[in-house]
């Protein structure tokens, strides 16, 4: 039932959750101060620990998707647990942004690229609304900016998908690898 890679990734998940729990209960800070290091950097150390365990289990052939998802979730919790609520929201925005950037660079399908761009735009929107709540709660400049971003994103999606459809009609594919007409 459990393949080796799944076992690997479950092991990684257990370790990552363990590190997170240790961090949340303040153990990591205690260890750091015991070692003569500044305790307020405990979250960065826990984060690095999770990342290194993830890299090790990836090197041993764990299930990549599970490790990446589990690592991101635990790292997110570790990085934001003792932060301001504003930093929390913006870290989540940064994570969405990074995932979107990954999708944009790596994906082969043009429509998936468009979806990744939408994800990045939404990450920016989260930041705008967070600023609007925390910095400018009277004038709501961030929310208004988010509304305009929404509008522009709608226009972008419509035009982008129309372009994709036109390309598909001419080349019968939406694979970005094949769009190499403008080589030189």
């Amino acid at each position: 039932m459990l393949s080796k890679s799944n076992l690997q990734s479950l092991l990684f998940l257990a370790v990552a959750v363990g590190i997170t729990l240790l961090f949340l209960t303040g153990q990591v800070g205690g260890v750091l101060s015991g070692a003569g290091l500044p305790a307020y950097k405990a979250d960065l150390f826990a984060f690095l620990a999770i990342v290194s365990v993830a890299v090790v289990s990836l090197a041993f052939g764990g299930n990549k998707t599970m490790i990446m998802i589990g690592g991101t979730v635990t790292a997110f919790i570790v990085l934001t647990a003792f932060q301001d609520s504003m930093v929390r929201y913006m870290t989540l925005g940064a994570i969405f942004f990074a995932i979107g950037a990954y999708g944009m660079v790596a994906s082969r399908n043009a429509v998936r690229m468009l979806m990744s761009i939408e994800l990045m735009i939404n990450a920016a929107n989260i930041n705008f609304v967070t600023f609007s709540r925390a910095v400018d709660p009277e004038h709501l400049g961030g929310q208004l900016f988010a509304i305009f971003v929404l509008t522009v994103a709608a226009a972008e999606a419509a035009v982008g998908l129309a372009i994709v459809l036109a390309i598909y009609r001419n080349m019968a594919t939406v694979d970005m690898e094949k769009f190499n007409l403008l080589k030189w």
């Binding site: 998707t65 990446m68 998802i69 991101t72 979730v73 997110f76 919790i77 609520s85 929390r88 929201y89 989540l92 994570i95 969405f96 995932i99 979107g100 990954y102 999708g103 790596a106 994906s107 399908n109 429509v111 998936r112 979806m115 990744s116 994800l119």
Partner: peptide
């Protein structure tokens, strides 16, 4: 609620960029 939403949203976002079935 924030952490619940985050824990739901991050795997979904991974699914958007990584799922085999587009």
């Amino acid at each position: 609620v924030f952490y619940l939403l985050a824990v739901i949203a991050i795997p979904l976002a991974y699914g958007v960029v990584c799922d085999r079935n587009i």
